[in-house]
Design a protein around this nucleic acid. Structure first.
Length: 893
DNA sequence: AACTGTGGCAAGTAGT
DNA sequence: ACTACTTGCCACAGTT
């Protein structure tokens, strides 16, 4: 049983007219001459959640699933799209006789051949024909049957994406069309009578049965257009199942739908079939854009699939969670080969995965992540249901379990809201011009394809296929300068602005501009790779990156304006957009350096990094030559010591007199940074003064340093060291964090004191075992047949690894383990080989923590702290002993 | 029997 | 999407 949906408050009619409103007209239909059907012209702004398509007779209807700016769910049935691919003759340009084209027309499933059009191919300009085929799935078949006689282009683009590419649309689209069906509530909201819902009408529109959306609109390709991004009132449904440990059956379930108007909660009880059936009904009725839950990818969705599979064939339910008619098989979520579940018309977004990516928590249990995000609210959440005794709990107090289940359904929504996961994805989709689904679950290559393919096709450049194999050779990457060991004071950090994108723009780096002809080359990389001049041909990638840079500047400007107006909403909106642009720009280098991307060549990635290394090394050499000291550098950043006659102590002093000296040093540091940035910036490359530090410390290892930033704002940065890592143990991170603060204040004695005291306490076991928990992610493969986990595919010697040992012990004790999840343990005996560890389960099942091997932890902590203190003459051994082994040699150091 | 050094595996981070 | 780099542990070989 579930609570019914409360009525939706009617919207004001005027707000709907902003985008054209609703027109009514009476027209005779061709199907039934004597009946006059009402046909309603409608104009909508839609955020595209997902795109699919269906073949109808000899044409294809594209289904665009989304949410309107007014908050209604909609499926737009777009007519007039025809699947196609392009062909050209292999080899150098040559004449093609008409008979050859006629043969092409005769190929099975080919509907039409058009052209030729002169296009740029890998072998120069060539005539290219466009071959239209019956259905999208015929594209690969025709492609393969033409193998050898023709080269094919644009022949592996998924048809759903085709709509956005051909019409140059993004996530937010304007739609004009005919309203052919609406739920009574939706009609009421729009202030109209719902249209007649006759089967013929839906069939005419290319639908079979009822889509679960509020509106069904029929449209034509010509009636879709690009619109500016808006914040869509997306809806999210979260759910949680409680299952029997003994039988694996579903005991109860809960779901919460979150809209901009609030939450609707539902709980499900009864027989397993009733629970699952009612849950499916609730999903279809509430028609959310996003389905979420905690670890649904690896738990709840597989459980639903398995339990339905276990039902007798006759009365088996359909797991129709998708936005398609009930009898349409595409409604069932599937995860074919991919790590992600897909479900037609909706996005499946696992709050576990999103939280993991956004927060990088040390432990990943729902309770730990909630604690992290909502420390105050967690008081309310009573952990009084013992999940390891679920069957008994359900027997004894079902209402408590149901309440617990509802809580667990609701938390994922709060988590996603707290990290703004949906909004971020919407922004990324708007920038990469892909549906929400691709923004959430797609790969970077899909986002970049979306921009690159559409520009190539507009620029009369053929689109190559994604390459099959990966080469064994890897490209040399960025340059990392040796870091000076110890404490340095008064440092400026200079950064190249968007270094790799700038290089790509400056040197016109693109697969379409690369050349082997030395006469044509105007850009020669340090590796010898050559690229033509911009005037000869402007590369696709430089064009896109230039646009992206401009759009980032635009959104940053809008942020400034919003800030001035104190419009937080607008500020956050543009901040997300500029952030998405940045993410996208930085992804370009990655796909270009990958060997299987369609628009790349091994020269590209190698040239970019080679130019970058040269640029950074040149500046380091010049700085060194002029007497400045370079402390560190990684890829695009340079840390330079500010030249000063006398270096004031780094800590901001309380005394007036000293404070003035300190402030003066800070001012001269800023001036020096700005001066360097200006001197080393040319038109093509921008070196920016990014940060000013009073103190910088490293023990001498690259990518590991801490710094006290005093410009542009005050903060402490820690890079690479244990406090940044999720696989250390808490006391290690906490101690180092405080020690770093002391070091940066130039309070060496306090840092050493803390190290000695913490090690002493640990040696005598005077610490909370919680501070000794180590967590790491663990791989493994699930055996399809028996559900067992196989570790041997991922690990050479699984049993010798502490995290695998922990995972195995969890499984032994009947606890969940899903490949990729983090497991937590305490080392109980390090004298054995491999060391003995015990899972730490206090958060999950309660009980006593395992007895730690304190001597192991003492040694590990001493090693970590000793690395730092060794810069000041205290080795790890000295820290454990509690005294420094002073020798003549150590004094000389 | 207890160290010490080394190569290999694995995870995680810093940077794009 | 990519490379550079550090660290921890194990297995093994070679000392002390």
């Amino acid at each position: 049983m579930f609570h019914p949906r409360p009525p939706i408050s009617p919207l004001e009619h005027s707000s709907f007219q902003a985008c054209g409103g609703v027109r009514l007209r009476l027209v005779p239909t061709p199907l039934c001459n004597d009946v006059v059907l009402m046909e309603m012209g409608i104009c909508l702004q839609v955020a595209v959640v997902g795109i699919s398509y269906r073949g109808i007779a000899s044409s294809t209807v594209v289904e665009v699933f989304g949410r309107t700016s007014e908050g209604l769910s909609v499926v737009v049935l777009v007519h007039g799209m025809r699947p196609w691919l392009e062909v050209s003759r292999p080899g150098p340009p040559q004449s093609v006789n008409a008979a050859e084209i006629e043969r092409l027309r005769g190929v099975r499933h080919v509907v039409d051949v058009q052209g030729p059009v002169e296009k740029q191919t890998e072998q120069g300009m060539k005539p290219v024909w466009r071959v239209y085929v019956e259905q999208p799935y015929h594209v690969p078949r025709v492609r393969d049957s033409l193998e050898g006689r023709w080269l094919t282009h644009s022949s592996d683009i998924v048809f759903g994406q085709r709509l956005l590419l051909d019409l140059d649309l993004s996530l937010h689209i304007g739609v004009e069309g005919e309203l052919i069906a609406a739920t009574p509530e939706a009609a009421a909201r729009m202030g109209i009578e719902p249209p007649l819902e006759e089967d013929e009408e839906l069939l005419l529109a290319g639908a079979s049965g009822r889509y679960p959306s509020d509106l069904i609109v029929r449209s034509n390709v010509e009636d879709l257009r690009h619109i500016e991004p808006f914040i869509a009132p997306l809806t999210t449904l979260s759910f949680d199942l409680e299952t029997s440990i003994q039988h694996g059956t579903v005991l109860c379930a809960a779901a919460v739908l979150r809209t901009k108007d609030g939450d609707i909660e539902a709980t499900f009880t009864g027989t397993e079939k009733e629970i699952i059936g009612d849950f499916i009904d609730f999903v279809r009725e509430s028609d959310p854009d996003i389905i979420t839950g905690y670890n649904i990818d690896n738990f709840d969705l597989p459980v639903l699939e398995r339990r339905i599979e276990a039902m007798p064939a006759k009365e088996r339910l359909k797991l129709a969670l998708g936005r398609v008619p009930l009898d349409d098989d595409r409604g069932k979520p599937n995860r074919s080969s991919s790590r992600w579940w897909r479900c037609t018309g909706r996005v499946i977004m696992d709050a576990w995965w999103e939280a993991r990516m956004a927060l990088r928590p040390e432990r990943e249990s729902l309770s730990h992540v909630s604690q992290l995000l909502f420390p105050d609210q967690m008081e309310k959440r009573k952990m009084d249901v013992d999940a390891s005794r679920m069957d008994e709990e359900w027997q004894e107090r079902p209402d408590v379990v149901l309440e617990y289940c509802l809580q667990d359904a609701k938390l994922p929504l709060d988590i996603l809201d707290a990290i703004a996961a949906q909004r971020r994805s919407e922004s990324l989709g708007a920038v990469a011009k892909v549906p929400l689904e691709t923004a959430v679950n797609g790969t970077t290559s899909q986002w970049i394809d979306s921009l690159l393919v559409r520009l190539a096709e507009r620029s009369q450049i053929v689109v190559p296929r994604t390459k099959g194999q990966r080469s064994s050779e890897s490209t040399e990457g960025g340059y990392v300068h040796d870091v000076k060991m110890g404490l340095s004071t008064w440092i400026v950090v200079l950064d190249f602005k968007s270094m790799y994108p700038s290089i790509m723009i400056e040197h016109n780096v693109c697969s379409t501009t690369r050349t082997d002809d030395g006469n044509k080359a105007s850009h020669v990389a340090p590796t010898g790779a050559m690229f033509v001049d911009k005037k000869e041909r402007l590369g696709l990638i430089p064009q896109i990156l230039t646009d992206l840079m401009e759009s980032r500047d635009f959104h940053k400007e809008q942020m400034r304006l919003a800030e001035k107006d104190e419009n937080n909403h607008q500020h956050a909106f543009h901040d997300r957009l500029q952030e998405s642009v940045k993410i996208l720009m930085n992804s370009f280098y990655g796909v270009l350096a990958s060997s299987f991307y369609r628009f790349t060549h091994p020269d590209l990635g190698a040239s970019i990094t080679a130019w970058a290394r040269r640029k950074v090394r040149d500046i380091i050499m010049q700085l060194t030559a002029e007497g400045s000291e370079v402390i560190y550098s990684d890829t695009d950043s340079i840390f330079v010591a500010v030249p000063m006659e006398e270096r004031p102590p780094p800590a901001k002093p309380p005394l007036d007199e000293d404070l003035e000296i300190w402030e003066e040093a800070r001012r001269s540091m800023i001036a020096y940074g700005e001066n360097l940035a200006e001197r080393y910036s040319s038109s093509g490359e921008m070196l920016e003064f990014e940060k000013g530090l009073t103190a910088f410390f490293s023990h001498g290892a690259k990518k590991r340093y801490v710094g006290r930033v005093v410009y542009p704002q005050f903060e402490t940065i820690v890079r690479g060291y244990e406090p940044r890592r999720t696989d250390g143990f808490p006391i290690q991170s906490k101690t180092l964090e405080v020690m770093f603060e002391h070091l940066l204040d130039d309070k060496l004695e306090m840092a050493i004191e803390l190290a000695l005291e913490t090690i002493r306490r640990l040696k005598f076991g005077e610490v909370d075992p919680r501070d000794l928990v180590i967590s790491r992610s663990c791989k493994g493969r699930v055996d399809k047949n028996n559900g067992n986990i196989d570790f041997t595919k991922d690990y050479v010697n699984p049993a010798s690894l502490a995290h695998v040992q922990t995972a195995m012990k969890r499984i032994e004790r009947g606890l969940t383990f899903t490949p990729g999840m983090k497991v937590s343990w305490i080392v109980t005996d390090a004298r054995t080989s491999p060391m003995t560890v015990e899972p730490y389960l206090v958060d999950e099942t309660g009980g006593e923590p395992p007895e730690p091997d304190y001597s192991f932890y003492t040694r590990r902590l001493a090693t970590a702290l000793g690395r730092i203190t060794e810069a000041f003459g205290w080795t790890a051994g000295d820290l454990v002993a509690g005294t420094r082994q002073t020798t003549l040699f150590s004094f000389q150091e």
